[in-house]
Design a protein around this nucleic acid. Structure first.
Length: 406
DNA sequence: TCTGGGGTCCTAGGACCC
DNA sequence: TCTGGGGTCCTAGGACCC
């Protein structure tokens, strides 16, 4: 049976949502109407463009480029900081509205959803539902969305990416040659900046070129990725709308340092704070991890990572930090200026499903208690070491943990 | 004052086993 | 002693997404 899929994509999400939030707080200007971007903090060396207004786009400003570059392209451009709390709020409002249409919704990202409408069309058409959603979001929530209308997720996503903003586009199978094959191959979902030049060298310029290329040839050159890109170019995608909440596969926390650090004691201190965050989230998910991974980026932007599989899954800060610290010591070349440091845990399992370890002795119980105490403190003070200094005495907490992990 | 942070999935090579 | 080959697990790194 033919599936009925919608893809809803918020136009310039972070910028639109910031604009609405500012207007609500009494701002006289609507930053959607001027050259503006939402960006990181240049003084913290995270000065990249997260979202841009239409006027900024007209200057040639692109998402993920530096604010420095944006200013060159568009002198006088206004820059506003991001506010994820606000974004989550609007994202939830959108989700609520969409929930009136189907319960098969996949939150693909903070500003994108897939809807499986197959069993929810009644006597209406999919296109009409798309148009209704587009109108209602604008009227009731105050921002605009693009809606892609198709028979699978890939085509719906491609459709919502056609002309913007505030549009509803269909991409049914018979429309593929005219609407999709004419586009440059770089527009195809999952074709990034590494793959596109390789395709160009093979004289593949448009999605149509790719669709007509021999599948076997692509498989030989790109492996699984080759098969996928051929299928996508031909509009083939059998993946389901994942409407059930999935457990995370890994949890990580990394930070670009305000200035390069070449001192391992300092790096260890930051690593501890990052580990604290990661294990806190891990415990909140009621999960345990088996793999610990430490990532470093040096001043030349070269990334290295080391990982280790532990004997038993754990969510304990001290235990995970112990491994993270060893990994750092193993990989850090003395004197190297480090720009970014990160820790992540993978190979996660549900805590409930874990058997009670034979070694779950007093020591472990003591550790669990300590973690719980710290978690409670965090909840109370909303303490987040790296991104914002909380009300709590951060230095003391570091010392507390430092003494503990010794 | 140039380049975020959170993810997922895949690949290649080495170790080890039978 | 001319050295297969399939399979699994592990690690490092790459590509892509928003």
């Amino acid at each position: 049976m033919e599936r009925q899929i919608l893809h809803v994509d918020v136009n310039n999400a972070f910028l639109s949502w910031t604009a609405i939030d500012m207007l609500k707080k009494g701002s006289k200007i609507d930053i959607r109407e001027i050259p503006a971007v939402i960006g990181g903090d240049e003084s913290k060396r995270s000065g990249i463009v997260l979202a841009k207004s239409m006027k900024a786009k007209e200057c040639g400003v692109k998402t993920a480029e530096t604010i420095y570059q944006a200013r060159i392209k568009c002198p006088g451009i206004k820059i506003f900081p991001s506010n994820f709390k606000v974004y989550r709020e609007y994202s939830n409002k959108l989700y609520q509205l969409l929930s009136e249409y189907t319960d098969k919704i996949e939150r693909f990202s903070i500003d994108e959803c897939f809807l499986d409408m197959t069993q929810y069309l009644m006597n209406d058409t999919l296109l009409n539902k798309g148009k209704e959603i587009n109108k209602r979001v604008k009227k009731e929530l105050g921002f605009t969305v693009n809606v892609g209308v198709a028979h699978n997720k890939l085509l719906a996503k491609m459709a919502s990416d056609f002309t913007k903003p505030d549009r509803v586009h269909t991409l049914f199978e018979n429309e593929i040659p005219n609407k999709m094959w004419t586009l440059p191959v770089s527009e195809l979902f999952m074709l990034g900046k590494r793959t596109v030049p390789k395709l160009y060298n093979m004289q593949i310029r448009t999605i149509g070129d790719l669709a007509k290329t021999d599948k076997k040839l692509l498989q030989n050159k790109f492996g699984k990725h080759g098969i996928m890109m051929w299928e996508y170019a031909n509009g083939i995608d059998n993946s389901e709308v994942k409407y059930l909440k999935e457990k995370p596969k890994g949890i990580g926390n990394s930070v670009t340092l305000p200035e390069d650090v070449s001192n391992i004691e300092k790096l260890e201190e930051i690593l501890l704070a990052l580990t604290e965050q990661v294990t806190y989230r891990l415990r909140k998910e009621k999960m345990m991890a088996k793999v610990v991974n430490v990532q470093l980026r040096n001043k030349d932007f070269v990334d290295t990572s080391h990982q280790r599989k532990m004997l038993n899954a754990t969510a304990n800060t001290k235990e995970i930090y112990h491994h993270a610290k060893e990994l750092l010591e193993q990989m850090y070349i003395k004197g190297t200026p480090i720009r970014l440091i990160g820790v992540r845990v993978d190979d996660l399992t549900d805590k409930e499903e874990m058997q009670i370890s034979l070694f779950n002795d007093d020591k472990n119980e003591k550790q669990e208690k300590l973690d719980k105490t710290i978690d409670k403190l965090k909840e109370k003070y909303g303490y987040n070491l790296i991104t914002r200094a909380g009300k709590m005495d951060v230095e003391n907490l570091i010392k507390f943990r430092k003494d503990d992990v010794k």
